[in-house]
Write a protein that binds this DNA or RNA. Structure first.
Lengths: 93, 93
DNA sequence: ATAAATAAGTTTATAATATAAACCAAATGT
DNA sequence: ACATTTGGTTTATATTATAAACTTATTTAT
């Protein structure tokens, strides 16, 4: 039984990645709403994903407000697809 | 986004449940080999699954050796299937 | 103009989890 | 008889996830 990428095998990080697989880009506020997570938890998990290179994080401004935009990387997409394949083995899909 | 049953969202417990979904019964030694886990970890996770009622554990003897046999319960099967459905939402399957 | 509230995050502390290491009792091999 | 293996359990430790507290800047209300 293959190992499940521990970085992806976490509810919140998986949710983040799942969203980013489908939307090209998503900002902090959007991810927070969609995942219904606390800001603190989201911040931590985004950091982990970005420091492993699964996503990129770009901090900018829209008007005077800060805006943190996340995008999935190639590596992230590969990892996600690989995780899905591995998981299928466990789920018998 | 629905919550993923935390009892199942753990690599080893998921592996145990996955096996038990397919085999009717499996003993400690078999599960240990198949999952490549340590005995201690396996013991703990089996306890958790059994104290939640997802599996039953029967300790008996075969000859003079002890034998711990695990079986999945109805509740366990329901929970597993439910987990799979929820997960599909995350994986876009 | 200033105080209070809100927004967008980050940092730090705590609770929960997973894992491994140490241990135990019985059986088997030498 | 003594060491080793088998089949586990218990306890300690490392990792993780989560929440609470904090920061900085921005509105909104008075």
């Amino acid at each position: 039984m293959k190992e499940l990428d521990p970085l992806l095998h976490s509810q919140l990080r998986l949710a983040i990645m799942s969203i980013l697989m489908n939307v090209d880009e998503a900002d902090f506020v959007y991810l927070k709403e969609k995942t219904e997570s606390t800001a603190g938890n989201l911040s931590v998990q985004i950091d982990k994903l970005s420091s492993t290179g699964y996503i990129t994080v770009e901090k900018g401004f829209v008007g005077k407000k800060t805006r943190t935009v996340c995008r999935i990387t190639e590596r992230g997409q590969d990892a996600f697809r690989n995780y899905v394949e591995t998981l299928k083995q466990y789920l018998n899909l």
